[in-house]
């Protein structure tokens, strides 16, 4: 990565004032950057070993969770509100600490990691939030580029000096979610669905091997919901990015997941393929029979 950092471009000048030889140079460099020896095997399997999480106020978030998620899976986690879905997701990148047990990613302990080591692990994990969590006053491109900060020195990123490679990566990521033309718009000028796609692009620009999405479509209308879920699914298949999504809609879970995990009171009470997730199975997860409201078609 040090090689690319030698060739820098301020984002503002991108595309306008660009010396010819710099372009050539950066293309040469990009070739070296295109096949970096990224240790993919470091980033494959997510493993929960007897993980429990108790919040400071005594609430049990997770209760002795054991779980293995393989590379390239599209896991949808369902469960009632308060079942511990967000808690599970947020322990994977240590936004939440665990009380006991261990979480491993590619054999490396997340729970034990701290400081720089933790930041490097997080760099490989994209996160998508219900409320998008974009900087609304910044441009779309800058929001996407913010996914790259883990790859460069503090000084460089603070001055916004991202290498050309990064800008191309960011624009490619925006193309993948079909909003490349919005790159220079301010994030708050975009619709909710478009903003969520920006945050997906941010995770892509991050070159994450894992994407965690905590109710990514909860604030979107049904049509936009499908577009965003389609994007996630496509990215999961094309780039074989392990994707873990929390969802409230049973029919979406069945449609998009390769594996459904049901949670109740901090425990995993269902784990199977979508075909196995029958209405009875959901009734078990929810502790009652399914209401119309849990199907996307009937909910707002």
């Amino acid at each position: 990565m040090n090689k690319i950092t030698k060739q820098s471009f301020a984002i503002q000048f991108m595309g306008q004032h660009r010396p010819k030889q710099a372009v050539l140079f950066s293309i040469l460099l990009r070739r070296t950057a295109a096949n970096p020896s990224r240790k993919l095997e470091d980033m494959d399997m997510i493993e929960f070993r007897n993980v429990s999480k108790r919040y400071a106020n005594g609430t049990v978030g997770l209760n002795n969770v054991n779980l293995k998620i393989n590379e390239g899976e599209m896991v949808v986690i369902v469960g009632l509100s308060g079942a511990g879905k967000s808690t599970l997701l947020r322990t994977i990148n240590k936004l939440h600490d665990t009380t006991s047990g261990e979480i491993l990613i590619g054999g490396k302990s997340v729970t034990a990691a701290r400081g720089r080591e933790l930041r490097l692990i997080r760099r490989g994990i994209g996160m998508i939030f219900q409320s998008f969590n974009l900087v609304k006053r910044s441009t779309v491109l800058r929001n996407v580029l913010s996914g790259r900060v883990g790859y460069h020195s503090t000084l460089r990123t603070v001055f916004g000096l991202f290498p050309r490679h990064d800008i191309e990566l960011a624009l490619d990521a925006l193309s993948r979610v079909n909003i490349r033309e919005k790159a220079f718009s301010r994030a708050d000028q975009l619709s909710g669905g478009q903003q969520q796609r920006v945050s997906i692009a941010r995770a892509l620009a991050q070159e994450a091997k894992i994407i965690l999405a905590d109710e990514p479509v909860a604030s979107l209308d049904p049509l936009t919901t499908r577009q965003v879920m389609d994007d996630l699914k496509r990215i999961n298949q094309e780039l074989s990015i392990t994707t873990i999504v929390n969802l409230h809609h049973i029919d979406l879970a069945r449609e998009y997941a390769t594996r459904i995990i049901g949670m109740r009171a901090g425990e995993i009470v269902f784990d199977g393929r979508p075909e196995e997730a029958t209405d009875e199975a959901f009734a078990h997860i929810y502790g009652r029979s399914i209401f119309e409201a849990e199907l996307l078609g009937a909910e707002s």
Binding site: R119, M127, L134, G150
Partner: peptide, 14 residues
Amino acid sequence: GPIEAMTAVGANKI
């Protein structure tokens, strides 16, 4: 939100 997002991305404090 953005602070949380930047933390998740692996950014340091600065």
